[in-house]
Design a protein around this nucleic acid. Sequence first.
DNA 1: AAAATAAATGAACAGTGTTCAAAATAAAAA
DNA 2: TTTTTATTTTGAACACTGTTCATTTATTTT
Lengths: 207, 207
Amino acid sequence: MGIAERKERDKEELRERILVAAKTLFLEKGVEKTSIRNIADLIEYSPGSIYHYFKDKNEIFHALHQGGFQQLMGRMEVLATVSNPMERLKGMGSIYVQFALENPDMYDLMFIKDAPILHVSNSNDEQWKEGFGTFNFLRSTIKECIDVGHFRGHEEEALSFLVWSTVHGMVSLRIRRRCEVVLAQRQDTIVKDGLNEFFSILDRLSS
Amino acid sequence: MGIAERKERDKEELRERILVAAKTLFLEKGVEKTSIRNIADLIEYSPGSIYHYFKDKNEIFHALHQGGFQQLMGRMEVLATVSNPMERLKGMGSIYVQFALENPDMYDLMFIKDAPILHVSNSNDEQWKEGFGTFNFLRSTIKECIDVGHFRGHEEEALSFLVWSTVHGMVSLRIRRRCEVVLAQRQDTIVKDGLNEFFSILDRLSS
DNA sequence: AAAATAAATGAACAGTGTTCAAAATAAAAA
DNA sequence: TTTTTATTTTGAACACTGTTCATTTATTTT
């Protein structure tokens, strides 16, 4: 039965080639301007072939989407050694913002674009876990902070959402070019400055 | 010279009709799914005609964009009577969030979609003022707060950006459907809950 | 070598934003 | 009023889009 296995491998390989081509194109032109025909041209297959490996265009970018979460989670792993939950929380903020600014197109696909998320609800639980992962990590870190006596009077779930929203807000305003309203000389550093203001607020809320 | 004036009025009227049709369609189908031909059909003109009134599709939705800012600013006007800057700041947050949740498509166009903002840089200063308006109002309110003794150790520009990012973050995660990761039973109220957490943080930062 | 299975094709469909020569309409001049 | 000029509107055409599917090509099994 080695042949069936090889065929399986071949199929997986072409699937991966489509994904690589899609990622290459969308990182240089954006999702909207990347067409199925563009992807087909790059891997030297016909447009129709792609539909044997992915249901539609959304499914292609949803697959990349998944990869992005794994990448982000991977970066968070260095925080496993940080035992102080408050320090870990700030570390998460830094890593999140850095990831977003270094991979704006990937971040856009993961947290701003609206296309793939509806499709996500139909996928299996394994895949879902990836999406939940980062938020669960945030929630448990904030729970630890509360248990240790920080954020008195605040509530786990809402505070987690608020913290996520704060960092997401800053990077998404930057990525979607809404920072022109801040002072011209501050525009380059405003996300970093905002994050520092946020950290000093978190510190003040520690006791 | 009454004729020239009447022609000018007619032209302006058709321009307005295009805008109304565009808004109607995009509020019920979204910007992406609203085509020039859809708009042309609704006003019973040919597709080509629209290009005599607007350079391209972006310019149409940019015009609506402008209207959105005026609407948001209009809602903010009730705060002119609130003399306590801290209360005014919280009022701005409430109004901003309420506007976003009541007009998600308009909010999306104004603060999330990436198309029209590049084009904005080429428009005249008068129009620009509209976009700056709300942020200037936020900045001056926060400056007042600082002058009165709140937010000790914080800086005007970065804090203004942070505050804006926080509310933008919450509503944009909701609008772009990223709230599925929060507890199922909290999803409906999470933005309101998050805003309340934010207000209580602001209160704690008052002294 | 022939039959059966699987994979890849590319033309076709219905749509998109945009352009532009031509036609229709309105205004000005004769 | 008729002719000329200017403006407005048209709709076909262009080059694209995502997606489908009968047909061809390639591979595996009998």
